[in-house]
């Protein structure tokens, strides 16, 4: 049993890919790794990747748990818009940033609970259940902002998106702390195990005495809370709640981050750290595209190509090849040569 090395081995593909994409950044922009300290904040492309990756990373934390239960949460982008709108509305109405943050979290939590009840209690398929809020949520956010970009000047709230803590942009601190916190919470308690069990075989888990309904609801609740935080950060970053655009299509990036993190959409074993690396990989790809100075018409094609390559490298078949390669390379005893059949199916 190689327990101490197991986590590292699990993360190896993501770490290698991240390194490769960062190297690509370096190739298109030689000063990529330069970090300066100016105006009391760290300043550099690497910091930008960490900072701009925050919304996707936050969503990926919740999404990882949801996907581990064999579910999916399509509503997170819309929940971001709602949370941002609620936070903006509260400070515009003259309350403090703490109230705004709590209000946004309450709104996100309510959305998550709603999803959880639809999935766990009413047994609606997750993709359908969360689609409801994905479609309706942005409308709710527009009702809150009354159709405009709700601009605010509350320094405390703005600090959450655009400020720094010890020189590090606040969003970076928030997502790293939350990622570490949730990872700690699921691995130091039995939550992780129970969530995985539900994702792999819900019926067997129920028979083993796992309270699947409550756990499923909690998982969507966490996803809603993560989305709310992401929504507050995005709104704070631009000092305004943009109900039309905040978090638009970000649910897909979050799902992609989870997948790049090597987590199966069919549920089961999960790694939040790997998903967070996945979010950083996506952001690094975005960064490379922006820095390359290519005409914007190429953005999506290049992004798609890079991600395709990443997913192909991670495919189980390629993994099996590598396993065979390692097994035959690392075996000192000359084995009788038998034709190795590797049919590409």
């Amino acid at each position: 049993m190689a327990a101490p090395h197991a986590p590292l081995r699990r993360l190896a593909p993501q770490i290698i890919i991240l390194a490769a994409v960062l190297a690509l950044n370096l190739a298109v922009f030689p000063d990529f790794f330069r970090i300066e300290f100016q105006n009391g904040r760290l300043f550099g492309n690497l910091i930008d990747v960490l900072n701009r990756g925050a919304p996707t990373a936050l969503l990926a934390i919740g999404m990882t748990l949801v996907i581990a239960t064999r579910g999916i949460d399509l509503s997170v982008g819309a929940v971001m818009a709602i949370a941002g709108a609620v936070a903006a509305k509260i400070v515009v109405d003259g309350h403090g940033w703490g109230t705004a943050l709590l209000g946004a979290l309450a709104a996100g939590g309510a959305c998550g609970l709603w999803n959880g009840v639809l999935v766990a209690w009413l047994r609606i398929q997750p993709i359908v259940a969360t689609l409801v809020l994905m479609v309706a949520g942005r409308g709710v956010a527009q009702l809150v902002t009354e159709g405009t970009i709700l601009t605010f000047l509350n320094e405390g709230l703005i600090h959450l998106g655009a400020g720094t803590i010890l020189g590090m942009p606040t969003p970076v601190v928030i997502w790293i702390a939350l990622g570490a916190g949730v990872t700690w919470a699921v691995r130091r308690t039995a939550l992780g195990l129970l969530i995985e069990a539900i994702g792999i075989n819900e019926s067997a888990s129920r028979l083993a005495g796992i309270n699947a309904k409550v756990l499923l609801t909690c998982v969507y609740l966490v996803s809603g809370l993560c989305a709310a935080l992401a929504g507050v950060i995005v709104a704070a970053d631009i000092k305004g709640a943009d109900a039309n655009n905040a978090g638009l299509w970000l649910e897909l990036d979050a799902i992609l981050a989870v997948v790049i993190g090597g987590n199966s959409l069919l549920g089961g074993r999960f790694s939040i750290t790997a998903s967070l690396l996945g979010a950083l990989i996506i952001q690094s790809v975005n960064s490379a595209i922006l820095l390359s100075g290519m005409p914007p018409e190429f953005n999506l094609v290049i992004k798609a190509l890079i991600i395709l390559v990443i997913l192909v490298i991670q495919s189980p078949r390629i993994g099996h090849w590598l396993y065979i390669l390692r097994a035959s390379g690392g075996d000192p005893a000359p084995r009788r040569k038998t034709p190795v059949k590797e049919t590409a199916r």
């Binding site: 930008d48 655009n245 905040a246 820095l291």
Partner: peptide, 20 residues
């Protein structure tokens, strides 16, 4: 580069311009 007509993308892309 495109900023998708949105405030947040405008900020993100401007950041990259400033760095690049």
């Amino acid at each position: 580069q495109t900023g998708d007509f949105t405030r947040s993308q405008g900020k993100v892309v401007m950041e990259s311009f400033l760095k690049a």
